[in-house]
Nucleic acid binder design. Structure first.
Length: 280
DNA sequence: AGGTTGACCTGGACGC
DNA sequence: TGCGTCCAGGTCAACC
């Protein structure tokens, strides 16, 4: 489920709650596909490490660690249904919990007062560690950051690409962090049809697209900031915030601008929504 | 190499 | 109520 704004909101919320704490012990489930590193490596690297910073790169939550004197990293991808929860140990463990980190604010404490839990029903999420995270091996993500990419680089990304612009926006090795909702919304706000060939968009269109994409992402981050606790604390039941979507999941409903019914098509195997009048 | 398709999972919504 | 079908905001391997 989570795209860039959701992942950023979660990372910030988790950072506020657990940075500076030490991981005393780690439990992992026995579902091997959840782990990109082996569960043993994960336990090895995390145990007795201190959490310095929690942040987002693309759709991945990155936790910078100090292990002994050396930097390491813990990488969490939430997939479609992954959740990262800060709980107390007495909070009931939800179904589909795949990892639990017991934390303590003092390095030498025997047991902690908080836990970081990774819960993922559908198991598309992935956990991994970088044992020695110097500047060259620190996780940088597969592509470019949509919020900070300069216009010239943005335009270059799509040059000569024959794939539909919708598919190109979802390609994480170009821009990382953009998912299905914000791709559809950004194309709507820039007036571009999802099936247009990426390499055939004009400079003016790509300029509009970058502006629209950054605006929808920033607006969603603003919205999420006020409700972090809904999905980081305890059970995290409330789920993700809803932006005021213009096209996503509005098939058949009137366009908010021109009242024409919103169309749904499939592009690159993904459900895609657009206004046949407002988008050219 | 770039582009496309299907596989990976579970659960919720919907129709009969 | 129960059962079957379809759908889901994510990758990634395997193909062309």
């Amino acid at each position: 489920m989570p795209e860039l704004p959701e992942v950023e909101t979660i990372a910030n919320g988790v950072h506020e709650r657990i940075h500076g704490q030490t991981i005393q012990s780690v439990w992992t489930s026995n579902k091997p596909q959840t782990f990109k590193s082996t569960p043993d490596e994960i336990v090895q690297v995390l145990t007795k490490s201190r959490i310095d910073r929690v942040y987002r790169v693309g759709k991945t939550i990155v936790i910078d660690l100090t292990r002994g004197k050396r930097p390491a990293q813990f990488l969490i991808h939430l997939g479609m249904t992954g959740r990262l929860l800060v709980s107390t140990p007495d909070t009931p463990i939800p179904p589909h919990t795949h990892a639990i980190l017991s934390l303590s604010s003092r390095p030498d404490a025997a047991s902690g007062n908080k836990e970081l839990r990774f819960v993922d029903a559908r198991r598309f999420g992935r956990l991994s560690v970088v044992a020695s995270a110097d500047d060259e091996t620190k996780y940088a993500g597969p592509g470019k950051e949509p919020l900070t990419i300069p216009l010239a680089d943005f335009i270059t990304l799509f040059r000569n690409r024959k794939t539909p612009i919708k598919a190109a926006l979802l390609n994480q090795s170009l821009l990382h962090g953009v998912g299905n909702i914000y791709a559809d919304e950004a194309l709507f706000h820039s007036g571009i049809r999802p099936l247009r060939q990426a390499g055939r968009l004009t400079r003016a269109e790509l300029t509009r697209l970058r502006t629209a994409l950054q605006k929808v992402l920033r607006d969603a981050i603003k919205l999420g900031g006020s409700s972090v606790s809904d999905y980081v604390d305890a059970d995290g039941v409330a789920g993700f915030f809803q932006l005021h979507h213009h096209v996503y999941s509005r098939t058949g409903q009137p366009c908010r601008i021109c009242k024409t019914p919103i169309k749904r098509i499939v592009v690159g195997g993904r459900s895609t929504h657009f206004c046949p009048i407002c988008q050219k």
